[in-house]
Nucleic acid binder design. Structure first.
Lengths: 142, 142
DNA sequence: TTAATCTTTAGAGTTAGCTCTAAGTCAAGA
DNA sequence: TCTTGACTTAGAGCTAACTCTAAAGATTAA
């Protein structure tokens, strides 16, 4: 059993256009075609798409994803490179998470700030709540 | 005391080009110029840049950041919109964090997979470790 | 069998966010 | 004063990742 490009697209939340674009970029060398030239996505291909989505979703550019796919096609000799790539990507994800945590603190501060402002209809927040000013200084010092 | 565009750029980790681009896009209406036409960034302007960086870093497009800046320039009447924007952005950040968590699970699985493969020099990982196959099924089922 | 709805390709167009260039102006140190 | 480097503008160019179009061929349901 296999899926058409439209079905595959639906399954992974992309468009058929995007899948063709990925194919053109060399990201889908594993997808075979029927005798009449239509792409036929297997279950295994869908799994490939999911790992591509995972890497893309964590910010890896398509070029580097292609690099990974190429390594996979080359066989066992590239296992160390692939392992290394995932280790690097894990680092990257953890750095990003830390960054987002810091951003979230600023956003939470702004929510507190504007909640007070909304309640009183003006922006004299720090006069009413000096502690919030301290928090602001702490959050924006670096 | 105020900073030149180059100094300001360094302070927030952007280039002067980028700051000029932001200005052109209407993101920096608060930055004043000297009599000879040079931009002079105040401490308060630097804080604006940091909040812009925060919003950009959490994935808010420049157009929506401009919308926020415009609201700030309009005065107290837009406080509810601004509060709402930060609440929405907080939601967005938390959704993203959850997504990254899922991606990280897949990446951790791949690391385990390739660690075993690297150790044995081939990809017969699931024959050696059937539990990993179960984990794969769980991670890629959706 | 026919109509509707896929799918194919090559290639053009779009969007976001920079990034750089040219030609000139301004500021600060020797 | 001279020189060096930073600044100004308008506008062109670039990259990533799509997104769409046209014209033709394949598949499917009635």
């Amino acid at each position: 059993m296999s899926y058409s490009i439209g079905e595959a697209a639906k399954m992974v939340g992309l468009t058929a256009h995007t899948l063709r674009f990925y194919d053109k970029e060399g990201l889908l060398p594993f997808v075979k075609k029927t005798s009449s030239g239509l792409r036929a996505f297997t279950e295994s291909d869908i799994e490939w798409l999911k790992i591509i989505e995972c890497l893309k979703g964590t910010g890896l550019p398509l070029k580097q994803i292609k690099q990974y796919i190429d390594w996979c096609m080359e066989g066992d000799a590239t296992i160390p490179q692939r392992l290394n790539m995932f280790i690097e990507q894990k680092k990257h994800v953890e750095e990003q998470k830390a960054k987002w945590e810091k951003h979230l603190e600023k956003i939470n501060f702004k929510i507190k700030y504007y909640e007070d402002a909304a309640q009183h209809g003006n922006l004299n927040v720090f006069e009413r709540n000096p502690k919030l000013l301290e928090e602001k200084k702490r959050l924006f010092k670096d």
